[in-house]
Design a protein around this nucleic acid. Structure first.
Lengths: 188, 188
DNA sequence: TCATGCATGTAAGAGGTTACATGATTCG
DNA sequence: CGAATCATGTAACCTCTTACATGCATGA
């Protein structure tokens, strides 16, 4: 009957297995728990929720305070989720605009390129720190789902790899300043 | 006047700086040179090419053998590219369906999850090998653009990180078989 | 009371995927 | 001569992003 779910819808149903949630809640949950490798926007969430309600995969509960509208998963929804989750996952796609900028970097003044790189380096360093902190918290709790740990560990491995790669970039790429201060951390 | 290019269009113009190319060539060039972190399809390429021709950023040359239609960049195109390339690049997005499957892995029979993981591990191992081989070839040539090396190195760093992460996955995630053969490379 | 954060949603457009349709050339 | 590969393109659809529009609740 129904076609297989898309990954965004599937994820939402995944979260709804735990408890009824509002669109807002789902955005937050997704950001927190799968944000490292699957992004979604409010718009998408409300639309998928409406669609899934039409299809009978979720049911809207009564409006609460602040017009809150909790959705709960239905039996049909659980089935659809089960069908979705056992499909062989497709290959990942990465879209990394900075890498495009670097790839065509010979068309750019070195200081401009260096600036872009420096800004991104900071972003990744911050993310790594945040993930590591989350990781420590997960480690403390005894009843942690190992799957959550595994995905968080992916984020950490990824950010570490990106940072190492930044550090190994040759100075002639615009990362280094004058020959004297090649190893300054965030050169301009 | 014209809006800033999207990244896909920008990349195409980037390639066209080197020489006139057909849509087919561009797909191949993109796959080879930025495929690790920016994917595009034939459809997109032909569409962007048509759009850019309308906007005067590229010009179609004469049809060659096999209906080949080479496009060359115009001065306007070079300007548009220059405007695009110096914009601060946006954050990357990663969409990794396998990670979604793992995140919700508790709803899956362990052997199913293990199978998915094993298949992806092979894909990533193969990619790493291919990148490393390319990298060796680049290293051999003296007049290599360091930017090309840098982006390829990203691919290598990424694949290595993914493989390390695979290897560190706990056996209770479905990667391991019986306690005795935990370290078998591609367990079923 | 006023700013901030919570909360829901729509509309329009851009970007990306998949399937379809067609034909020329090269090589074995 | 037939298969594989080169080559171009369209159409339909789905997904994703951005901007807009609205209003309640909480706390300072």
């Amino acid at each position: 009957m129904g076609h297989t779910l898309n990954a965004t819808a599937g994820s939402l149903l995944g979260f709804l297995h735990d408890r009824p949630m509002t669109g807002w809640d789902l955005v937050a949950a997704a950001q927190q728990r799968i944000g490292e490798f699957w992004s979604l926007t409010r718009s998408q969430v409300y639309r998928e929720l409406a669609r899934m309600a039409d299809a009978g995969l979720v049911e809207a509960g009564q409006r609460g305070t602040r017009d809150k509208r909790p959705y709960q998963i239905t039996d049909q929804g659980r089935e659809a989720f089960a069908d979705w989750i056992r499909q062989p996952p497709a290959a990942e796609t990465i879209r990394f605009p900075l890498l495009l900028t670097i790839a065509f970097g010979r068309h750019l003044p070195p200081p401009t390129l260096a600036g872009h790189i420096a800004r991104h380096r900071i972003v990744h360093a911050d993310r790594l720190t945040a993930y590591q902190q989350q990781r420590r918290q997960l480690g403390d709790t005894a009843d942690t789902d190992p799957h959550a740990v595994a995905t968080l560990d992916f984020g950490i491995a990824y950010e570490r790899a990106v940072l190492d790669w930044f550090n190994d970039l040759p100075p002639d790429l615009g990362t280094g300043g004058s020959p004297g201060d090649r190893r300054s951390p965030y050169p301009r």
